[in-house]
Design a protein around this nucleic acid. Structure first.
Length: 215
DNA sequence: CCCCAGGCGTCCA
DNA sequence: TGGACGCATGGG
């Protein structure tokens, strides 16, 4: 049964690395900012950018939306793609203010909220789902590059599998548990960083090694 | 020097 | 629908 396989993978990673306690942020809004800044970027660089924003007292929707573009670019420069990301942060913050903030948006059903997020420029599937899961506490499974790489390298899924298929694999076979989804995604990233880097052709020493295939 | 990182939008066939 | 490419800094 697929469900048992997915739970086996989860428990192996949990036993190997322990609970990750994600997302590393002090507020839901900080989660959103981090989700945008970490697009194709190492978390260490994102931390520098967020530290700059905090040091400037700029970690709020009002401050980010009202700040001159060049000033914002300067603060988030360490996170890379800083011109794009400055625009994306501003677009997100303006939308957030128009909608009345996170508390107001919390009234919306998950599917509606997801569509609204995706309609903002610069917010794609993974960023939207990260925000839904970690900022809004919705039971949405986040799929990222590590999830895809780990599962495909272990022949659990096809290499050509799409985001939605992979997401449905988890969401149709696991209970919609926010805590489980948070920890599962965090463990994929932790395992991927340590055992399943792009450089290595194979994932060596990975807790998933030797598991039975799927499909 | 090289490759890579917790993606996304645009362009083009 | 899908592949190539640009975006950019900092670490290994």
């Amino acid at each position: 049964m697929t469900r048992d396989l997915l739970l086996e993978i989860y428990h192996r990673m949990l036993d190997a690395l322990g609970p990750q306690g994600w997302w590393p942020a002090e507020s839901p809004f900080e989660v959103c900012v981090g989700a945008i800044l970490t697009q194709n970027t190492s978390w260490a660089n994102v931390e520098r950018a967020i530290a700059n924003l905090k040091a400037s007292g700029a970690l709020s929707p009002e401050a980010l939306a009202g700040m001159p573009a060049e000033r914002l670019q300067e603060l988030i420069r360490p996170s890379g793609f800083y011109r794009q990301k400055a625009r994306r942060l501003r677009a997100f913050c303006r939308w957030l203010l128009e909608e009345g903030g996170i508390d107001s948006l919390s009234e919306l059903p998950t599917e509606v909220l997801r569509e609204r997020l995706l309609s903002i420029g610069g917010i794609g599937p993974e960023t939207a789902d990260s925000i839904l899961l970690y900022a809004f506490e919705r039971p949405v499974f986040v799929v990222d590059a590590y999830t895809h790489r780990i599962l495909s390298r272990h022949r659990i899924v096809d290499d050509e599998v799409q985001y939605q298929e992979l997401q449905e694999l988890f969401m149709r076979n696991l209970p919609p548990d926010v805590g489980l989804f948070k920890e599962y995604h965090a463990l994929f990233v932790a395992v991927g960083k340590r055992f399943c880097k792009k450089r290595n052709p194979v994932c060596k020493g990975c807790p998933i090694d030797g598991i039975d295939g799927l499909l």
